[in-house]
C-alpha cells in the first residue's frame, strides 16, 4: 500500500497528516452551500441535469423487510426507470444488504441490466459495531455474491475518540478484500461525526486509506447528506486531486428526495469539485424516492405540463 505517499501507515504519520488539514468554518460553509442553492437551472440544462442525476442514482433498499421480490422489482426499475420511455437512462447501481446481492445480480443480468452495478452495504452496516473478522467476512460474502461496489461504514466510535488509526486500518483491510473486484465506498455517517472539521478529516483519512468513493451517510441517521456536508467532501476530493492527481468519488445518501435537491447536488459538484466529477463513476446519489420525482420532472419538461404520480411506477 502506498497511501499516495501521504502517510506511511503509522499512527504518527496519520496524525501528522490529519493535523495538517485546515479547519472548516461552519457558518462560511453553510453560506456557500446556501448561495449555490440559489442557482436557477432551467430548460435544456435542467433536462440534462435530470438524466445525469438518474444515471447517478444508487437505487437503494435497506430494510429489514426486504425480500427477493422487493429487490427484483427494484432491479427492474433500475434498468428501465420508465418502462414507457427507453430514452431514460439506467441508474448507476442498486444498493442492497449483503444477503440480497446475489438475488440482485442474478436478476439484473437476467433482464439485460449487466451494466447496472450492485452495491452492498458492508462492515456491519449501519452501526459498524462488529469484530474486524466479521466485517471482513461480511465484505467477502458480498463480493463473492457478485457485488461490484462495497459501501462500508467506518467505526464512528473509534473516530470520535481519536483512534483514527483504527478507522484507517479498517479501511485499508477492507480495501485489500475489495482488491480489484469491487469499488470501495466509505460511509462516514456525517450526522454522527457532527462537525465539518470531522467530515473533512474523515474524508482525507478515507481517501489516503484507499477509498474509491466517500459517502455521507447510511440513511439511518438524520441529518444525512446536507448540502454543506457534501460541499466539504467535494472540496476534499478536489484538494486530494491537486495533491495526488487521483479523483475520488463522492456519494451523498439520505435526504435527497426530489429533483430540486438532486440538481442542487449537481450544482455543488459543478462549482466545487468541477465538471470532471459530473459522471456516475465519480458522483452517486444514494436514494429511493428521488428517482420517481426525477421521472416526473422529466415528463413535465417533455410534455409541457405537470405530471401525476400515477404515471410513474412505485417499485
Amino acid at each position: 500500500m502506498s497511501f499516495y505517499g501521504l502517510v506511511d501507515g503509522t499512527e504518527t504519520s496519520l496524525k501528522k497528516y490529519l493535523g495538517s488539514l485546515s479547519g472548516v468554518d461552519q457558518v462560511g460553509a453553510d453560506a456557500r452551500a446556501a448561495m449555490l442553492a440559489t442557482r436557477s437551472i432551467k430548460t435544456t440544462s435542467k433536462r440534462w441535469a435530470i438524466d445525469t442525476a438518474i444515471s447517478m442514482v444508487d437505487l437503494t433498499t435497506l430494510e429489514g423487510a426486504d425480500t427477493p421480490g422487493k429487490v427484483k422489482a427494484l432491479c427492474t426499475k433500475a434498468v428501465r426507470p420508465d418502462p414507457t420511455d427507453a430514452t431514460v437512462p439506467s441508474v448507476g447501481a442498486v444498493c442492497v444488504y449483503n444477503d440480497m446481492v446475489e438475488i440482485a445480480r442474478t436478476h439484473l443480468d437476467l433482464i439485460g441490466g449487466q451494466h447496472v452495478g450492485v452495491a452492498a452495504v458492508s462492515t456491519a452496516f449501519p452501526s459498524g459495531r462488529a469484530s474486524m473478522a466479521v466485517k471482513i467476512q461480511d465484505t467477502k460474502d458480498a463480493i463473492n455474491a457478485g457485488a461490484s461496489e462495497i459501501d462500508m461504514v467506518i467505526d464512528r466510535g473509534a473516530f470520535l475518540s481519536g483512534r483514527y488509526i483504527e478507522v484507517f486500518d479498517e479501511i485499508v483491510k477492507i480495501r485489500e478484500v475489495c482488491a480489484t473486484k469491487a469499488h470501495l465506498k466509505v460511509i462516514f455517517e456525517t450526522g454522527e461525526l457532527v462537525t465539518y472539521d470531522n467530515v473533512r478529516k474523515a474524508s482525507f483519512l478515507a481517501m489516503a486509506a484507499g477509498a474509491d468513493f466517500i459517502k455521507t451517510s447510511t440513511g439511518k441517521v438524520s441529518p444525512a447528506a446536507t448540502a454543506p456536508v457534501v460541499l466539504v467532501m467535494l472540496e476534499a476530493v478536489r484538494d486530494f486531486y491537486t495533491m495526488t492527481k487521483v479523483r475520488i468519488g463522492v456519494k451523498p445518501a439520505g435526504g435527497i428526495r426530489n429533483t430540486k435537491d438532486a440538481i442542487k447536488q449537481l450544482v455543488l459538484v459543478n462549482e466545487t469539485a468541477g465538471p470532471e466529477w459530473l459522471k456516475p463513476s465519480l458522483f452517486r446519489i444514494g436514494a429511493s424516492a428521488l428517482l420517481n420525482d426525477l421521472l416526473m420532472q422529466r415528463m413535465k419538461i417533455d410534455d409541457g405540463y405537470y405530471a401525476s404520480p400515477q404515471y410513474v411506477t412505485i417499485d
Partner: peptide, 13 residues
C-alpha cells in the same frame, strides 16, 4: 444519454 461534460446553465432571466 448524450455525452456532455460541462454543466451549462441555461439563461435564467
Amino acid at each position: 444519454m448524450e455525452e456532455k461534460l460541462s454543466f451549462e446553465y441555461a439563461p435564467a432571466p
